[in-house]
Design a protein around this nucleic acid. Structure first.
Lengths: 194, 194
DNA sequence: AAATAGAAACCGACCGGTCTGTCTGTTTTG
DNA sequence: CAAAACAGACAGACCGGTCGGTTTCTATTT
């Protein structure tokens, strides 16, 4: 792995645990084993490093969470699989994100402080919520949801449920509670399905 | 209001928006209109200021969220009222917490970084979750929940749903989405009630 | 009521340390 | 041998916290 990639991945690890502001350039240099010159040769500022790390994080997010969805036919099954992936392959991935979901951490930290960076994160949230709603809409069009289900509302709730599970998991580090939360969301999906 | 109280309240405002680390003592001094001496006369360190602010935040949390609960007889009604309070009287209170829920912000930020402070916040979360579960248990004992409801699971989900709504609201600032999330949680409670 | 002593509150210059980012010089690579 | 990659000393800004000096408040005495 190139130095640039090693810097990006170590940034992911540290940003996800300590956040952006409290991770110093030196912290990253120390673990990677390089120097100021080695880093600033690839990134012109700390902010540019964050953008590169965010881009890589999104790539990993897709790899981890969308895996296996195309093998399922029913949209609701895809959504359930997504929830399971989120639990087993994403949040549990302590290699890349030892501190939990990096997007949640950055969204909370950068809010009102670095609006242009917070916007970047928020747009990712919107896309995620859109994906959830699209799957629900497809399921509804196929007539497999109860009649009066508001897919927008359900999408918002599933999304918030996932965010909440992230925060709770970050806070209490309990795999057991995380499992229950995801299991609960899946059960909720079953309740609105026929 | 005394200088000490003014410092605490301004700390609440700034910690809730910018977090602990990124709020400098000088930031607070500037708005309050005092000096280093004025602050360090009342608090022996920035961390002690945070603890005082957290204590005040908990007090405000109770005032805002528990108001009116004792006028309701049915436990599930209390829980619904709590959710409405959370939306209307707590998260919408931009006077004390312009940046959203200060506990969520601190839980995410201080995690893995200041464990003893994070623990403080996490204990508050546990008490909140306990309160939710107690209300659900009372409702179940009265025979007003569907038979096979796991109150621990439901409490975990409602709690995570609230946390998620906080993060989403912090990120997109949409009162409309916040309303939908709370409305959705109340609807969910109706689904498991008979 | 006036004077005064002592404590508490407050001010702001200052200190050591850490931060990001720059710059010059050296090493590696194609 | 030129250009890219890397090393590390350095600059400039800002941080939390200290400390001696000044003001303000309070209580006691005359």
């Amino acid at each position: 792995m190139s130095l640039k990639d090693r810097i990006i991945h170590e940034s992911l690890r540290q940003f996800s645990t300590k956040g952006f502001m409290s991770t110093s350039i030196s912290d990253i240099l120390e673990v990677v084993g390089t120097s100021k010159g080695g880093l600033y040769n690839h990134f012109k500022s700390k902010e540019e490093l964050l953008l590169a790390a965010l881009s890589e994080a999104r790539k990993i997010w897709r790899q981890r969470n969308l895996e296996g969805l195309d093998r399922l036919a029913r949209p609701l099954d895809k959504l359930k699989k997504l929830l399971e992936n989120y639990r087993d392959r994403y949040l549990a991935d302590s290699e890349n994100f030892p501190g939990g979901c990096i997007f949640v951490a950055l969204a909370v930290e950068l809010n009102d402080q670095q609006p242009h960076l917070a916007k970047e994160v928020n747009e990712g949230f919107l896309r995620f919520k859109g994906l959830i709603q699209r799957l629900l809409d497809q399921e509804k069009e196929a007539g497999r949801l109860k009649n009066d289900i508001d897919t927008g509302l359900v999408a918002e709730m599933i999304f918030a449920g996932i965010l909440g599970a992230c925060v709770a998991y970050t806070s209490d580090k309990s795999r057991e509670n995380l499992d229950r939360n995801i299991q609960g969301l899946i059960a909720f999906l079953n309740m609105i399905s026929r």
